[in-house]
């Protein structure tokens, strides 16, 4: 990193030789700074996305993704996908899953961040431990929760029975009523630490004298939060919500190992459907068409979210 940046000034066009306006130079500089990002993403994502889009317009028994030209062009995949009544359900479940994860994860993350921003003994040990769920790889998370949510002898049932919340064991992953909750819980657990971390970092950046000034003005704890803390958290919070939302919307690692999209499609989100179409049913064209539809929907949601994010950030 040091190496990269200390050598960097040589790439600056030197002013005496090239006469360019400040704005022009700024623009070149801005884009050259963004180039590595675009290159990294473009080099590896552009081709797969192109294949996915191409694939979504191909008919026939697609078996060779390297030579898509041999399959006839068609809108059939889109026609099938869009007229399939199941699609609306998939979209709805994706939204339920995303909101169901992001809202509690944010609430837990915010609460913890506020707590961990205070001074108390042992904080240095508590803080890394509070982030621990983040360190558990998704494969291990889903295995651990399938073990704990076991409908017969899972410890979750035992604990809930012990405190009297349920009387009978609940087959969490087998019942359509509880399956969505059962896949949301591990996802929340895995994602809340990200909010905690981002918000702790943001809290650290609030100058302490702002609080002192507020206290001198006689502001209550709530008013301090409302007028000092929250304005500083809004932008990072919005950003973290968008990033997590995008991630969760297409999340697959928790749902598939736990329920495979069942029971009776109760947890079939767009991401699960895309996987099933391609890897269980071998209908690659339909899978890609759903993928493109997903991209459009998510893009639209993102644009809508974008407005509030922009407001939040500026």
């Amino acid at each position: 990193m040091t190496d990269v940046l200390t050598h960097a000034p040589t790439t600056q066009p030197s002013p005496p030789k090239r006469r360019r306006s400040r704005a022009q130079r700024d623009r070149i500089f801005a884009w050259s700074m963004l180039t590595p990002t675009i290159a990294a993403v473009g080099l590896l994502m552009a081709y797969p996305i192109y294949i996915a889009i191409n694939l979504s317009f191909r008919g026939g028994e697609i078996a060779d993704l390297q030579n898509l030209g041999q399959y006839p062009l068609t809108l059939g995949n889109y026609a099938d996908v869009i007229t399939d009544p199941q699609l609306l359900g998939d979209i709805w479940r994706s939204i339920v899953y995303t909101v169901g994860v992001v809202v509690p994860a944010f609430a837990i993350g915010l609460g913890l961040a506020l707590l961990l921003n205070k001074t108390f003994p042992g904080k240095r040990i508590v803080r890394p431990l509070a982030l621990l769920p983040w360190a558990v790889p998704g494969v291990a998370v889903s295995a651990a929760f399938s073990w704990m949510l076991d409908g017969s002898f899972g410890v979750v049932n035992y604990l809930l029975r012990s405190v009297g919340l349920i009387e009978q064991n609940v087959a969490w992953l087998a019942s359509s009523d509880t399956a969505m909750t059962a896949v949301i819980i591990p996802t929340v657990w895995k994602f809340y630490p990200f909010f905690t971390l981002v918000l702790v970092a943001a809290l650290q950046a609030i100058p302490g004298d702002l609080y002192e000034a507020a206290r001198l003005d006689g502001a209550s704890a709530w008013q301090q939060f409302r007028y000092v803390t929250w304005p500083a958290l809004r932008a990072p919070a919005a950003l973290a919500i968008v990033i997590t939302g995008v991630g969760v919307f297409r999340e697959f690692d928790f749902i598939f190992p736990l329920t495979g999209g069942g029971p009776d499609d109760a947890t079939t989100t767009l991401a699960v459907r895309i996987y099933n179409e391609a890897f269980e049913y071998f209908t690659f064209g339909a899978s890609a068409a759903i993928g493109v539809v997903t991209m459009v929907i998510a893009g639209a949601l993102l644009l809508m979210a974008g407005r509030s994010v922009r407001e939040g950030m500026n």
């Binding site: 081709y47 797969p48 996305i49 996915a52 968008v242 995008v246 697959f252 991401a271 993928g291 993102l302």
Partner: peptide, 21 residues
């Protein structure tokens, strides 16, 4: 925005072309 957009497709759909590359 396009950067974020590129992450909208689930990895499971991209994995075959990625493997091809």
């Amino acid at each position: 925005f396009t950067l974020l957009f590129s992450r909208m497709l689930p990895g499971t759909l991209l994995i075959i072309p990625v493997f091809v590359i």
